[in-house]
């Protein structure tokens, strides 16, 4: 193989790799804590509900979402839409939190997870009985 052929083959391999690869992004989050539980807000623009996977296993909460951009007709290899972004991040949940009762909503690329505290950790108001 001549030097030039080698270069061409190498460039082709790089282009193919790029088309199949994704850029891993650790999404930025805000966590709000109140008496009843926590609200986690994560920025994952471009991820649809179908491409989002949220799991809780052994008190580890993991978020994994992929962005698939549409590719217009006539686009060549290496077109922007061929590149994908993958958001990945995990959190360890405090024992106070109830991983069974998580509520998730996704709007405009913002994932909101509401995780309540376990009943025994919620503040209780003690009623004083009148004698």
């Amino acid at each position: 193989m001549s030097h030039q052929q080698e270069v061409v083959a190498k460039e082709k391999a790089v282009a193919e790799k790029r088309a199949n690869s994704y850029q891993s992004v650790r999404p930025r989050v805000d966590i709000h804590e109140d008496k009843e539980g926590i609200t986690l807000l994560a920025d994952i623009p471009g991820v649809s509900r179908e491409a989002l996977d949220i799991q809780i296993d052994n008190e580890i909460l993991s978020i994994d979402g992929r962005v698939e951009l549409p590719v217009p007709n006539g686009a060549k290899e290496g077109y922007a839409g061929n590149q994908t972004t993958r958001y990945q991040r995990s959190f360890s949940l405090s024992k106070e939190l109830d991983g069974e009762q998580v509520e998730a909503t996704l709007k405009d690329g913002v994932l909101a997870l509401r995780i309540p505290k376990r009943q025994e950790f919620k503040p209780r108001k003690i009623e004083i009985r009148t004698a």
């Binding site: 850029q23 891993s24 992004v25 650790r26 999404p27 930025r28 623009p45 471009g46 962005v67 951009l69 590719v71 217009p72 007709n73 006539g74 686009a75 060549k76 077109y79 922007a80 839409g81 061929n82 590149q83 972004t85 958001y87 990945q88």
Partner: peptide, 13 residues
Amino acid sequence: NHSTQPPMHIGST
């Protein structure tokens, strides 16, 4: 190893 800002994509046909 990870970026926190997703990249802007620009493509042209």
